[in-house]
Design a protein around this nucleic acid. Structure first.
Lengths: 236, 236
DNA sequence: ACAGGAAATGAACATTGTTCAAGAGGTATT
DNA sequence: AATACCTCTTGAACAATGTTCATTTCCTGT
């Protein structure tokens, strides 16, 4: 068990290449990607509950057992889909930043808003799977150390931190990173809270109003040294 | 089916009181609360996946069928538990505000931080069930209109709005309400993101650092009119 | 051809949510 | 007192699901 991740560990019988291509249906790699694409579609349609081994197998044209041959269990499939999404989100963010660069937008507030807008668009484009990403509890955390999941999140934080660096708020690296994480978490909270809140199209408007207010207040607050306005309240 | 919520709709055969008490084990109401208490404990221990009809029945000393006699399905049980939690959170928030009043704390930043601290403590006190609250998708939304769920959330927003009212930021009621929702969503996002992020005790520290920065920046930003600093960026 | 082994298969098992026909327990009516 | 009637309880039964594993299939190297 738990043989996932060690594909092609040993060649077939001995060290030979049998990658003829042609007549061969699909590589394990290709089949894995096909499974992940199907899984993402399923998650998008019906959330985590819609990710069923038999459905995947049927749509992929393979048997249930083969799914478990590619992935240890459905949790791993879900995790893999999430990583793809996080990865794509990072790419989207970078693309948004490149767009801003191209348009010569230097105003920090504009740039942050554009980043937030990109995030909102991404979430709206994945209505079913994004909540699944957020709700995903890595139960039985494999290791205490940071995994690929955290690495992807850190990459997202770095993008925001890069935007903040453009504005001159007198922040050292640590504090800027903290501000980036705070801003990201806040936007994230607004988006997800909005999804829980009232229905329909007023939702999108409310989310955007909150984001506008947050970013406006955040930038103004940073400009006036709010990041250092410690109150001497003890946590707990 | 769907008979939940209409208990004792008609008396037994006719209008008679057979509530002797004594010898009678448990009222439906009492049994429902017992079930909810058990359900909350189960959610706290193992998340949504740990809410099993048979476990509830066993621990409550009734049969599986009886559980479905009290609640339409497990979703309704989950929903009821969530409502209890939201209700309790509201009470906690009001208690925290009363404490501040008693201590004569008038500084807005202090008060917001104290509220946030109360929220964080509450979440930490319900490590398993709180994520379940957030992840709860009311699938098949019964009505388009606001339900009890939204009412509870609005109550929470109102508490925050009350705190903001103390500070004089030149906000009209609508804008203050928006700021309250924004602040709440942001804190919420910080807490839940923190739960997703790195493990262990550094987690709590990181969460609190983010909250401190957010509140500091938020208050400073409001003081300097950041709530009106509209950028002319279009949403999408 | 044959042997060896990796990969695919799908039947089988365990666990779940949910339903429902049968029964139990009580009240009112005669 | 006996009966009819109603409500609530029960637990067996069903369907859907995640997961396993003995068997078969398919390919490569000899």
């Amino acid at each position: 068990m738990v043989n996932a991740g060690k594909w092609n560990e040993s060649g077939p019988t001995s060290g030979s290449e049998y990658k003829d291509r042609k007549s061969m249906a699909l590589d394990k790699e290709e089949m894995s990607e096909k499974v992940l694409a199907i899984a993402e579609a399923l998650l998008n349609e019906g959330g985590a509950d819609n990710l069923k081994a038999r459905t995947i197998a049927e749509q992929a044209g393979i048997s249930v057992g083969s799914v478990y041959n590619l992935f240890a269990d459905l949790d791993e499939v879900h995790r893999a889909v999430n990583m793809r999404l996080l990865d794509r989100l990072g790419a989207t963010g970078l693309a948004a930043m490149a767009d801003l660069e191209r348009q010569g937008v230097t105003d920090v507030q504009h740039r942050i808003l554009a980043m937030a807008a990109a995030y909102v668009r991404f979430v709206e484009a994945h209505p079913g799977s994004w909540p699944a990403v957020l709700a995903f509890n890595r139960r039985r955390a494999t290791r205490p150390g940071p995994d690929a999941y955290d690495a992807l999140l850190d990459a997202l934080f770095d993008i925001v931190a890069g935007v903040l660096k453009a504005g001159d708020f007198g922040l050292d690296d640590d504090r800027r990173a903290l501000a980036a994480r705070t801003l990201w978490s806040s936007v994230h909270g607004i988006v997800t809270s909005g999804y829980v809140a009232n229905s329909d199209s007023r939702q999108a408007e409310e989310i955007w109003h909150q984001i506008e207010l947050l970013v406006g207040v955040f930038v103004k607050g940073l400009e006036h040294g709010g990041a250092f306005a410690h109150a001497d309240t003890k946590p707990a």
